[in-house]
C-alpha cells in the first residue's frame, strides 16, 4: 500500500512538471503566430515603433489599409495563392508516392545494385542546395522551362530525404510476411504495393505530407529565381516583393501577407495532424 501511494505522489509531481513545461512550450510556439496576426491589423508605423505589442488604434481600418497595399501592387494575391497551392500539392503527392515506391524497392527486393543505389541516395541527400540551384536554373533556362510551375513540382519525384526516411520506417515496421501472403493470394507486385504496403505506411506518410507541404509552400529561393512572370508568382515571392522596396517598407501588409501565407498551412497541418495525434496503431503489421 505504502508503495503505491508514493508512486501516486511521484506521478502527480511528474504530471505537474509535464504540464508546466508543455504549457510554456505551447506559449512559445503560438506567440509568433499571434504577433503575426495582430501585426497584420496594425499600421506600419505602429509596428516600427514596437513590433511586439498588441496595441493598435484601429484594427479593422489598418487591416483594410494593409490589404489595399498588398492588393494594390501589380501582382494578384489570389493568383499567388493558387500557384502556391498547385506547386505544394503537386510536390507533396509526387514526393510521397514515389518515395514510398522507391523505399519499397530498396527494402523489399534483393537486387544487385541495391546497396549502390541506396548509397547514391544518401549521397544526394548531402549535397548542399545553394549552389546547385544555379545549375538548375541555367539548365531550365537553356531548355526554356523557366516560368513553368512543373519545374518546381517534377523534381519532387526524386526526394532522397524522404526515400531514406521511408526505408528506415519500412525497416522498423513492415514485415515481409504480409507481402508474401499477398503474393500467395496472387496479387501482382505493383498491386501489392498500392493496395497493401502503401496504405500500411499511413503514419509515416501523414507526417511526411506535412513536412513536404510546409517546405514546398515556404520555399522561396528556387521559385524566386525560376519564376519571373507575375502570373506565375507564388505567395512567398509576392510577400518578398513587398519587402524589397527599402525606401517604403510596408510592414503592416508584409505581416498580412505572411499571415495569409501561413493560414493554409495551419489548416492543412491540423487536417493531417489527426493521423499523428490519434497515433494510428500498427497492430497486426509485424506479428
Amino acid at each position: 500500500m505504502a508503495k503505491t501511494q508514493s508512486l501516486h505522489k511521484e506521478s502527480i509531481g511528474l504530471k505537474i512538471i509535464i504540464y508546466v513545461v508543455c504549457v510554456i512550450l505551447a506559449i512559445a510556439s503560438v506567440l509568433p503566430f499571434i504577433i503575426m496576426f495582430s501585426n497584420s491589423m496594425r499600421s506600419t508605423f505602429e509596428i516600427q515603433q514596437s513590433s511586439i505589442s498588441f496595441f493598435t488604434k484601429d484594427p479593422i481600418g489598418n487591416l483594410a489599409k494593409n490589404w489595399k497595399v498588398f492588393n494594390g501592387k501589380s501582382f494578384d494575391p489570389a493568383t499567388g495563392f493558387i500557384n502556391s497551392l498547385i506547386v505544394s500539392t503537386g510536390t507533396t503527392i509526387l514526393a510521397v508516392y514515389f518515395s514510398c515506391l522507391t523505399a519499397y524497392a530498396l527494402y523489399a527486393y534483393e537486387w544487385k545494385l541495391r546497396d549502390a543505389f541506396f548509397g547514391l541516395i544518401v549521397g544526394i541527400m548531402m549535397i548542399p542546395g545553394t549552389v546547385t540551384a544555379i545549375g538548375f536554373y541555367q539548365a531550365a533556362y537553356k531548355v526554356g522551362m523557366t516560368n513553368k510551375l512543373s519545374m518546381l513540382i517534377l523534381p519532387a519525384i526524386a526526394s532522397p530525404n524522404m526515400v531514406f526516411f521511408m526505408r528506415q520506417y519500412l525497416q522498423a515496421s513492415l514485415s515481409m510476411e504480409i507481402v508474401d501472403s499477398a503474393r500467395i493470394d496472387g496479387a501482382g507486385e505493383f498491386m501489392t504495393f498500392n493496395r497493401i504496403v502503401f496504405p500500411l505506411m499511413k503514419p509515416a506518410i501523414a507526417t511526411q505530407c506535412i513536412f513536404t507541404f510546409v517546405g514546398s509552400w515556404n520555399n522561396l529561393f528556387v521559385p524566386q529565381i525560376l519564376l519571373t512572370k507575375k502570373e506565375k508568382f507564388t505567395l512567398p515571392i509576392e510577400v518578398s516583393l513587398l519587402n524589397s522596396d527599402i525606401y517604403q517598407t510596408e510592414y503592416g501588409s508584409i505581416y498580412l501577407g505572411l499571415s495569409l501565407t501561413v493560414i493554409p498551412l495551419i489548416v492543412i497541418y491540423i487536417l493531417l495532424s489527426r493521423y499523428i495525434v490519434e497515433g494510428v496503431a500498427l497492430g497486426g503489421v509485424k506479428s
Partner: peptide, 8 residues
C-alpha cells in the same frame, strides 16, 4: 514586365 525582388 519582369519583376525579381532584390531579396537574397
Amino acid at each position: 514586365v519582369t519583376i525579381v525582388a532584390t531579396t537574397n
